[in-house]
């Protein structure tokens, strides 16, 4: 691994920009996710920024159950993110559809639609758990870089 590759790999792990997408959650997980950005947890210490735009994001945080209507949106957002990218599914609903999984309009967990790299359980997931999930996601970048060279 050359010096430049090392530099890029470090930069990737220290500058994760997030896109948070609420697929239809009860807002429990959303509130906990946003809490990470508050002064109490201050994830910007680690370079984390909530960008609200798939075109700038590295990590997609998805909360809530995927249903027939928001499935398309989720796919589009995922496709609009440039490589390398990782997906973190948050909360029971994001993992499996949660208590709504039997509903007729529900598709299920996030991994039914897009590939998920990290699963963060909880109902709602705690901020510490979410931060832990993001840190795990950062490790995925290293694996992805190894797998695909420069990640292109």
């Amino acid at each position: 691994m050359g010096l430049i590759d090392k530099l890029i790999s470090t930069a990737r792990r220290r500058s994760p920009w997030l896109l948070h997408f609420d697929c239809g959650s009860c807002n429990g997980c959303d509130i906990e996710t946003l809490a990470c950005l508050t002064p109490v947890y201050d994830v910007e210490r680690f370079g984390v920024v909530n960008v609200g735009n798939p075109k700038h994001a590295d990590i997609l945080l998805v909360t809530g159950t995927v249903n027939l209507r928001n499935r398309e949106v989720l796919t589009v957002l995922f496709e609009q993110m440039p490589e390398p990218k990782v997906v973190v599914a948050i909360g029971a609903c994001g993992l499996s559809g949660g208590i709504f999984r039997e509903a007729p309009n529900v598709v299920g967990g996030v991994d039914k639609v897009i590939p998920v790299d990290v699963y963060v359980p909880g109902c709602p997931a705690r901020p510490e758990a979410i931060i832990d999930g993001v840190v795990l996601a950062l490790e995925k970048f290293r694996e992805k870089s190894k797998g695909k060279g420069e990640g292109k």
Binding site: F21, N53, P54, K55, E72, V73, L74, V76, L77, E79, Q80
Partner: peptide
């Protein structure tokens, strides 16, 4: 080729 950002509702 990318698509424009339309809040995902492309």
């Amino acid at each position: 080729k990318g698509t424009a950002y339309m809040s995902g509702a492309n």
